[in-house]
Write a protein that binds this DNA or RNA. Structure first.
Lengths: 240, 240
DNA sequence: TTGACTAACTTGTATATACAGGTTAAAATA
DNA sequence: TATTTTAACCTGTATATACAAGTTAGTCAA
């Protein structure tokens, strides 16, 4: 599958945790045992285990071993970089994406600021509504610099833009910065979303960067208050 | 300072980024140059650089080097494990902590569920209000298992519980899981916070774990809508 | 029986080496 | 001059070794 040894070991162990072969509270095999199982060196095993640890799947305890953490209660991984399609698949709820707008435009002041572009650049603007169990919950406004994304179609936007960007265009999405806050409903929110009686929406500003640290996408994701949920895992660094 | 080589290098490079000695967009010295500067091995340098990369301070580019990312626009690090005291210091705004309640109690059903305790356990309950620039913005409800925290005082709660736990009790706080959502204001919210006209609050459930993966603290942090802000950094894993 | 010690495990850190593969600029060639 | 090649960098991965330090269970002695 993967030509990368430690990543494929990470993936293998992760799937064993997700499938429940390794259960929460349980010890996974020691580093030396894994060295034998995967026929590799200890450092390679440690790279895989450290990734699991950083992402909150295991806890390493010096002298004892690694135990599996309980992730089931936190099975809503908006944290990290995951597309709506991937998320919807994990949730297992009937969901749908409706493309409301798709056009090439010149950047306004807001975009010049958020997407670091000039008036000469062309920008793809995509407005999509995410429907979960028949309710219009999320309004996604995506902006791409045409320099990185020459062509977009309604069909691509309905399926998964990420899949298109990574598989077709071979863009290497590397990291994202997210900013969360709450804002009053705009007319646009009321137009596209079923906001019910709510006066506010949760806004997630998402800045997505490529491999070479160039900003190529800005997304504003507007969530209906009552349906918003976000989960985060963080480790504390002790300087000792 | 630190007896740990790669962590002290991480810290040193981090402070150079924060002080602006290494500026955003700039290349930091190559791994081999850092090997000479710090008189250590390349793997040790790489451990420090990988930490910086995971935390969003630098971007490593194969064949080229590592460039400093722009963190100034994201200078509100609620992400990660940071106490209110540490946060307030970074913000540089006048802030105050008011202890509204401090008592030893038996767990109710909610706590039995969230703190994984039995009816026999004693629980410290701390209710504090965080005031920023004179406004009551955040309501923190902390619950500690007495097994881990034998004694608490009003004085400790006003200063920093974390500092007390880590420095005095030598507890090793290791990781936390956070859950964000929006909820309708309760009477308690209205009693303790200046909620203004708002009908909802942002709730952050915080589960804090020690070194050995034991859950020792549950916190419910209730933020006034308009003042809530959260920032997140995430990297995408490519299986290649 | 109790307590101290020891041996055999565990993970954590530091080092060295080798090679793969991306980047860049200078040197060689057409 | 324009293009190709090469050499010297850069980071990424994989391996091996050594020792530090925490945990555990069994052994031995008081």
């Amino acid at each position: 599958m993967s030509e990368n040894k430690y990543l494929s070991i990470y993936n293998d162990l992760l799937s064993k945790i997700e499938k429940g072969i390794f259960k929460p509270g349980m010890k996974i095999p020691s580093e030396n045992q894994l060295v034998e199982q995967y026929e590799t060196s200890r450092e390679t095993i440690r790279k895989a285990l450290n990734l699991l640890s950083e992402h909150g799947y295991i806890q390493k305890i010096k002298g004892k071993g690694s135990i599996v953490l309980d992730v089931r209660k936190f099975d809503f991984p908006i944290s990290g970089l995951i597309s709506f399609k991937e998320l919807a698949q994990k949730l297992g709820k009937p969901s749908r994406t409706i493309v409301e707008q798709l056009e090439l435009m010149k950047p306004d002041e807001m975009l010049k600021k958020h997407l670091h572009v000039t008036a000469r650049d062309d920008i793809w603007k995509v407005i999509r509504v995410r429907e979960i169990e028949g309710e219009r919950i999320i309004l996604d406004k995506d902006f791409f610099n045409k320099k990185f994304v020459p062509l977009l179609s309604k069909d691509i936007c309905e399926r998964s833009i990420y899949e298109y960007l990574e598989k077709e265009l071979q863009l290497k999405i590397s990291f994202a910065k997210k900013e969360f806050f709450v804002e009053e409903c705009t007319d646009e929110d009321r137009k596209y979303l079923h906001v019910k009686q709510y006066t506010h929406v949760v806004v997630v500003r998402n800045y997505v960067y490529l491999d070479d640290a160039s900003l190529f996408q800005y997304t504003e994701s507007r969530h209906r208050l009552d349906k918003f949920r976000f989960v985060d895992f963080a480790r504390r660094i002790h300087l000792h």
